[in-house]
Computed example of a mutant assay.
Amino acid sequence: MIFSNILVPFDGSELAMKSLEKAIEFAKLDRTVKVTALHAYQLPIKRVPDAIFNPVKNMIMEDAHATIEPAKKKLEVISEQSEAMIVEGAPIKVILEKAEELNCDVIIMGSRGLSGIKEFLGSISHYISQHSPIPLLLIK
């Protein structure tokens, strides 16, 4: 098999779903292939009292769980080794760290068309394509 351990950053978008579906296609070719759907979320810097911060944190966590739920359902059709996970942190950092930690051999993620200020600032997929030590398959 070309890939044995696939990481799919998952934000709930249409391109994230297409990326996950592509990873599942690879996994269906070989039941030993592991697919990990990863949702990274970032909490705001805590500069307010707990009474204000905790409700915001809870809303972000609820959103993270709701976001990853479709990925969990999609992954049910393949190997027991596959999983969906939620990790707190900057998405760029989390994606690269988890790819290494999980010993992934490819990252499959969506590519977005960039223009204007977004291209100047860069995107997550662009950054990953420039800094990932493992292959990256971008889905359009």
Rank of each mutant, 00 (worst) to 15 (best):
P44G: 08
K34L: 07
L96I: 01
L121K: 10
P133M: 14
M109R: 07
E69G: 01
M17E: 11
P70A: 06
V94P: 05
L137W: 08
S82V: 11
L38F: 02
V35C: 06
K74Q: 06
K18I: 05
I68R: 02
V8C: 11
L96Y: 03
F10V: 01
M85W: 05
D30I: 08
I68Q: 01
C104R: 03
S123C: 06
I92S: 04
I139Y: 04
M59C: 11
A16K: 07
G122I: 01
A23K: 08
E14L: 13
P91M: 04
N103G: 12
H131G: 00
A66H: 11
L137A: 02
L102W: 10
T36K: 04
V94M: 13
G113R: 15
K93A: 10
S79V: 06
K34W: 05
K73F: 03
E25D: 15
E25Q: 10
L29S: 14
S111K: 14
G116V: 08
K28A: 09
E62Y: 14
P70L: 02
L20I: 12
L138H: 06
I139A: 04
I92H: 07
Q42L: 03
G110M: 06
K140F: 05
L121G: 00
R31F: 15
L29A: 13
K140E: 13
A64S: 08
A40W: 03
I95C: 05
I139S: 00
I128R: 03
N58Q: 13
P70H: 08
K98F: 06
V106C: 00
H65Q: 13
E119Q: 12
I86Y: 01
I139M: 07
D11S: 04
T67R: 05
I134F: 14
E88Y: 09
S4Y: 07
H39M: 08
F10D: 00
M59A: 15
R47G: 15
V87F: 04
A64N: 11
K46M: 12
